[in-house]
Design a protein around this nucleic acid. Structure first.
Length: 507
RNA sequence: GGCGCGUUCUUCUAACGGUUAGGAAACCUGAUUCUCAAUCAGGUAAUGGCAGUUCGAUUCUGCUACGCGCUACCA
């Protein structure tokens, strides 16, 4: 029988989740749901030095905001816990011991300082020190020391680590679900530390043991893990658990918008776009990093954008809700090469999702901002205002930028427009228009437009010569939605008042 | 340095041996005769290089160039 698909997202709580991490979580989630499987969240906190308070809660909140809710994991329950590696600490030692027992691993007593020294020396000789099958013979470990010496070191409570004994000259070939056949020769690989002197396993041991115990069927992770795949495969083998071991898939990296390299926090700061899903305040420094949520992105836009970064359905569809993503997702259609992130595209997606929302819905989202500005208005009227400006908005906050004049008279007038469009006789014309407006009783956009057109024809004035100054008077600038809509929405009195005021101020 | 992975318009990508190399973003032009935005209609623009396999290579192989990743008692 086919095993139930189980995948995991396994971040380490060393800070906020990066958008690349969110994409990894997304692809895991989509793959799981596509195959009716489980998506787990496992916290990889084996490095106690790098623990950052709040990071774990952040990860959980971010996934939830994105709609990537785990079936099991820290904060979500489940039968195969604990899902925090620090809480699984007692489980790893016996696997490490078994490896030693069977000759797949060994104790290493070299101190960090000694190894550092060796690295420095090698560097001075333009070499790179590597703890591997060539050098281990000359180092302090249970392969070179006598049984008694090893025993003495162990008994003496001396610090030791357990290293994997990389076998000689083996070709490790694996079919990566995204990349196809990938191969490595073990002679190029080093003896990685599996078990640290603080009693914690390293990522390598812990992830293999946990994936086995949690019955993970597919490991979907970033490309930066590709070089350690052979180690992991060998570990499953040495542990005698390779029977049901997971299949591997390595996702392409998300690259900086400009230049090269992995997207980093600094890029966002520099170029003014978020790299994190949610705002993050560094508990040490107090530094704030902006988040997509706080910047006004809709989670569906964020997710849609992320999904298409490195994956495509092979059709021309580009807007997907989560269900559609689940439906269309296919690991084999993930691109192999790194994808440069384009912040403009993220905005474009947000615009799309904003346009999809009804004026009623948008008005509700707009309300808090209005309250903040101290503006109150009739809900129906608000919905009409929102309806008239939404198509020029990318974010909810743009509703204010695009529509503030509906609530407040302009306190200044765009200089360039004044200079180029406000002629000597403009004031005079506008006075005539206000007088004409006084005579209009049915103050609705269409009747005003009809009457106004007639008036203009009578006067033989050009629309352009008059409309821009009027707009300037009402809005303060030369841009905005249909003028007659604005007339109606701000009301007859206010319209006339603003025109009069503009004539006074500008003359 | 070693190992690994990658390379189609400016960007995200499609084409899994045969296409005028397609779409989207960006950009440019035009249309909407009040503006700006939006919208609509057009347009510019790509297979890193060299060999090989083949009747035929974007697609397969090799080399080369370039890029990225990894090379911690970090994940």
């Amino acid at each position: 029988m086919e095993r139930k698909v189980r995948v995991r997202f396994a971040p380490s709580p060393t800070g906020p989740l990066h958008m690349g991490g969110v994409r990894t979580a997304l692809f895991n989630y989509l793959f799981a749901k596509k195959h009716g499987g489980d998506f787990l969240l496992r916290i990889e906190d084996t490095d106690q030095n790098r623990f950052v308070p709040g990071a774990e809660a952040y990860i959980i909140e971010a996934l939830t905001w994105c709609g990537l809710v785990p079936d099991e994991g820290v904060g979500f329950g489940g039968e195969m816990g604990p899902y925090r590696q620090s809480e699984r600490k007692p489980m790893y030692k016996k696997y490490a011991d078994a490896l030693i027992e069977n000759g797949f691993a060994y104790y290493s007593f070299d101190t960090a300082e000694e190894l550092d020294e060796l690295r420095k020396q090698a560097e001075a000789d333009k070499q790179v020190f590597s703890y591997d099958l060539h050098t281990r013979k000359g180092l302090k470990n249970s392969l070179t020391l006598s049984k008694e010496e090893v025993e003495a070191h162990l008994q003496g409570g001396e610090h030791y680590v357990i290293r994997f004994k990389m076998p000689e000259n083996r070709e490790i070939v694996e079919e990566d679900l995204i990349r196809g056949r990938v191969s490595f020769n073990t002679n190029q690989l080093d003896d990685k530390v599996l078990f640290k002197s603080d009693g914690m396993p390293t990522y390598h041991l812990a992830n293999v043991v946990d994936d086995h115990l949690m019955e993970i069927t597919h490991v979907i992770r970033g490309e930066e893990w590709l070089p350690s795949m052979p180690l992991h495969i060998l570990l499953y083998e040495a542990l005698g658990i390779s029977e049901n071991r997971p299949r591997f898939s390595h996702l392409p990296l998300i690259l900086k918008p400009e230049g090269k390299g992995k997207l980093s926090k600094r890029d966002g700061d520099k170029m003014g776009f978020p790299v994190f899903p949610l705002l993050w305040k560094d508990p040490e420094t107090g530094d704030i990093s902006r988040g997509y949520r706080e910047d006004g992105y809709f989670p569906e836009a964020f997710i849609n954008m992320l999904a298409l970064l490195g994956w495509n359905p092979g059709t021309e569809q580009e807007f997907f809700c989560m269900n559609e993503l689940v439906e269309s997702f296919d690991l084999t259609r993930v691109v192999k090469s790194g994808a440069r992130f384009d912040p403009e595209k993220a905005k474009w997606f947000n615009r799309h999702y904003l346009q999809q929302k009804s004026s009623e819905e948008l008005t509700q989202l707009f309300l808090p901002l209005l309250k903040e500005k101290g503006v109150t208005a009739d809900l129906q009227k608000l919905e009409r205002i929102v309806g008239s400006i939404k198509e020029r908005c990318e974010f909810v906050k743009d509703l204010w930028d695009q529509g503030h004049f509906f609530f407040q008279a302009p306190d200044s007038y765009d200089e360039k427009t004044v200079r180029t469009k406000w002629k000597a006789d403009t004031s005079e014309k506008l006075q005539a228009i206000t007088a004409f407006f006084e005579t209009i009783s049915d103050w609705k956009a269409t009747p005003i437009k009809d009457a106004f057109s007639e008036f203009m024809t009578q006067k033989e004035w050009g629309f352009g010569a008059v409309m821009v100054p009027v707009r300037l008077a009402l809005v303060g600038s030369s841009s905005g939605p249909d003028l007659f809509e604005i007339f109606e929405l701000i009301g007859k009195e206010e319209t006339i008042e603003r025109i009069r005021k503009a004539c006074e101020v500008i003359q």
